[in-house]
């Protein structure tokens, strides 16, 4: 956890510098145009339609650096707290 958190923060910084405020979805679409369609189909047809619309889509609409920044920040904080305790 102490390692993964900082790595994700570094990834967030790299994404911010490289792609600015481009949505995560746009970035994934450029990497593989069919990926999100498949993910959406699996999520909405076999799990729950709302899971896509209300949970995953907001993450994909946000700038690409936000998801790793939030996750990295939480993990770094947890790692720091664990090291102290």
């Amino acid at each position: 956890m102490r390692l993964i958190g900082p790595v994700l923060l570094a990834l967030a910084a790299g994404l911010y510098l490289g792609f600015g405020s481009d949505p995560l979805g746009a970035l994934l679409f450029r990497l593989d145009p069919g990926l999100l369609n498949l993910l959406q189909a699996v999520t909405q047809r076999y799990l729950l339609p709302m899971l896509w619309d209300d949970v995953l889509l907001p993450v994909l609409e946000a700038p690409a650096w936000i998801a790793p920044a939030v996750l990295g920040g939480v993990l770094t904080l947890l790692g720091w707290m664990r090291a102290r305790g």
């Binding site: 949505p23 979805g25 746009a26 994934l28 679409f29 450029r30 999100l36 619309d53 889509l57 994909l60 609409e61």
Partner: peptide, 9 residues
């Protein structure tokens, strides 16, 4: 149309 939120399409 919620699908249009996927601006990358």
């Amino acid at each position: 149309m919620p699908g249009l939120r996927q601006s990358w399409y």
